[in-house]
């Protein structure tokens, strides 16, 4: 019983949980009011988006509350889904079918290094060992046509969907410091990144005029980017000292680079989708597109936040 009680969030973690639920409730209410006030417009996309947010936030909060093992399995599965989406999206060679089996095997291994807290292996496994294994396995089947493109795209996919996202999981292994345990670091990173996505989207919808990268992502505007960054800056400035070991001054830096990194991760995945010629990476999450569409910002914020934190405090 005492173990269960220990898992109940207290202090800042509890307030943040309540805050998230409050935000979602406000969004649901707003969606319903908009649909009633202006029934001539189609609000189903927005409301599907908000419903999916409830589900994602619920599953995520439950996963980080239950235990470290559950969080790791959850994040590993998220990496797997994103990798599967990526490998289904890019053109692959028939000869590389066997290579892809090895590539998928990297997901449980990478998270196993996190589980046993082997930092040295965690940080080089994909950049070094998988980087070597993929071309070696490809040489074995011997097809040279398209070799470089295949080796490059496959390794890029592993870096993006497994290596970067597994940094979220490694936050759980950082020793507790000043009351800030791994779960609150994960919560902070994911909350700030996702909040920033929504803030940039909302500012862009309300005030967007001047396009920031028209050839990559035609819906992104300076107004959305700057308004969203300013809003997220405020959130980071007040939340970071509560949930992380970052000081006020360090929070100023994080408040600037996290929202910017989120934006850049988002547009990088957009550029890939544009290159391949699809709008959404998938259709698994109603109103959001695919898994990759939802975690694209995290692929940049996760490793940057992790190493910023680790350099300064661990």
């Amino acid at each position: 019983m005492s173990e269960v009680l220990e898992r109940v969030p207290r202090g800042p973690l509890l307030y943040v949980f309540v805050g998230i639920l409050g935000l979602l409730a406000a969004a649901t209410l707003l969606g319903a009011l908009l649909a009633r006030a202006r029934p001539e417009k189609d609000w189903s996309e927005l409301n599907a988006r908000i419903r999916s947010w409830w589900l994602m936030a619920g599953v995520f909060m439950l996963a980080i509350l239950l235990s470290r093992a559950v969080s790791l399995v959850f994040l590993a599965f998220l990496s797997f889904l994103a990798l599967k989406e990526y490998l289904s999206l890019i053109p692959t060679r028939r000869a590389d079918r066997g290579v892809l089996l090895w590539v998928y095997l990297a997901v449980p291994l990478q998270y196993a290094w996190v589980w046993i807290d082997w930092y040295g292996m965690f940080i080089i496994f994909i950049p070094v060992y998988m980087f070597i294994l993929i071309p070696v396995r490809m040489v074995l089947h011997g097809q040279t046509e398209g070799f470089l493109r295949a080796a490059g795209t496959i390794h890029w996919g592993l870096m993006t969907t497994v290596f970067t996202l597994s940094h979220i999981a490694y936050l759980l292994q950082l020793p507790e410091q000043g009351g800030a345990a791994g779960a609150s670091l994960v919560l902070f990173l994911v909350l700030v990144t996702q909040f920033n996505d929504v803030a940039q989207y909302t500012w862009g919808k309300l005030f967007g005029r001047h396009k920031v990268m028209p050839s990559v992502s035609p819906n992104k505007t300076y107004e959305g980017l700057l308004g969203g960054m300013a809003t997220s800056f405020v959130l980071v400035y007040f939340l970071a000292p509560e949930l992380t070991p970052l000081t006020r001054n360090e929070s100023l830096v994080a408040g600037f680079f996290l929202p910017l990194a989120g934006f850049l991760g988002d547009v990088s995945v957009s550029a890939i989708k544009r290159d391949i010629g699809v709008k959404d990476s998938g259709s698994s999450i109603p109103g959001h597109g695919g898994v990759l569409d939802r975690v694209n910002s995290l692929t940049f914020t996760a490793p940057l936040f992790f190493h910023f934190l680790r350099y300064l405090h661990f």
Binding site: K84, L87, S88, T92, L100, Y104, G282
Partner: peptide, 18 residues
């Protein structure tokens, strides 16, 4: 589309593909 990639004729292990 895609299932022939995941488990083509003659293959034993399925490889995940959407």
């Amino acid at each position: 589309h895609g299932l022939g990639k995941a488990l083509p004729k003659g293959a034993f292990l399925p490889v995940p593909f959407f």
